[in-house]
């Protein structure tokens, strides 16, 4: 077995890494950088979130929550703590996610009306987050190693130079069959993403609507997910963002689900 591996390795060396492989490697590297800029900004982050879900018929539903993120490892494990404020009948619900780069995430929810902490299924990362057009994965990121990436073009989008990268899941995935990301060359943030179905129809479109520099970190303040397939969209607005506040690991535990850390969460 070892011999075979050595032979293969030697073969690869002899053949050299082909140019297309080099391009793929580049695209993967670009995707990784974009991912780090987008989902791993700073070592931790704290923000108030307003999520406005607009149905096809134009009816609005609003969710407001505070979100605390801690990166355990850059590009790897992360922990998210979410404290819901609105709608008022779900206020004080808290939600905890331990995200792992291997994909076996864990989620817990605290239900204040019955004072119960319950682990909930995290199998379907493509499922909707609190009934919005964003999936869990759109919020916390789909790891770049799960897709094959190809650099399709260098373009200009709204006056900004972008990489257009196509991502195709390595294993069949419900969320999309193909995704095009338009990544700002300067900040490495995605300005636009287009999700295509198996039949290559555009089903979802992400747009970064407002970008600002906060604590020296370029941040998407307003983003929208357009649900092309069903109609409607969800707009997420960040407010009171702060980075590198020194969030401690122990708040991402059951104890803090029941008793939210007052230091970070103002009612």
């Amino acid at each position: 077995m070892k011999k075979l591996t050595t032979t293969l390795f030697a073969l690869l060396l002899i053949l050299g890494i082909s140019s297309s492989n080099a391009a793929a490697a580049d695209a993967t590297e670009l995707m990784k950088q974009s991912h780090l800029a987008y989902f791993y900004a700073g070592d931790d982050g704290l923000t108030d979130v307003n999520m406005t879900i607009v149905s096809k018929k134009g009816k609005e539903r609003v969710r407001e929550f505070t979100m605390i993120r801690l990166d355990i490892e850059e590009g790897g494990n992360q922990k998210y703590y979410t404290y819901f404020k609105k709608p008022s009948d779900v206020s004080r619900i808290t939600f905890l996610v331990h995200k792992t780069s291997e994909g076996n995430d864990q989620r817990w929810i605290y239900i204040p009306s019955i004072d119960l902490v319950k682990p909930i299924s995290a199998d379907d990362k493509n499922s909707s987050f609190v009934g919005s057009d964003f999936s869990y994965e759109d919020i916390s990121g789909r790891h770049w190693i799960e897709d094959n990436h190809t650099l399709k073009a260098d373009e200009t989008l709204d006056g900004k130079a972008v990489y257009v990268i196509e991502s195709v899941p390595k294993e069949a995935y419900k969320g999309f069959a193909r995704k095009l990301s338009y990544i700002d060359k300067e900040t490495m943030l995605p300005l636009k993403e287009e999700y295509f179905s198996k039949k290559d129809k555009l089903v979802k479109k992400f747009t970064a609507d407002k970008i600002e520099v906060v604590d020296g970190i370029t941040t998407i303040i307003v983003r929208t997910m357009h649900n092309i397939k069903k109609g409607g969209h969800t707009t997420v607005t960040f407010d009171k963002i702060s980075y590198n506040v020194g969030v401690k690991d122990d708040i991402f535990t059951e104890r803090y689900l029941k008793n939210p850390p007052r230091k970070y969460i103002k009612k």
């Binding site: 819901f84 779900v90 939600f95 239900i111 009306s113 909930i120 299924s121 499922s127 987050f129 609190v130």
Partner: peptide
């Protein structure tokens, strides 16, 4: 209200 919210949170369509 909170039970229904849990349903919306716990995945599925």
């Amino acid at each position: 209200a909170q039970l229904l919210f849990v349903f919306e949170m716990s995945g599925g369509d």
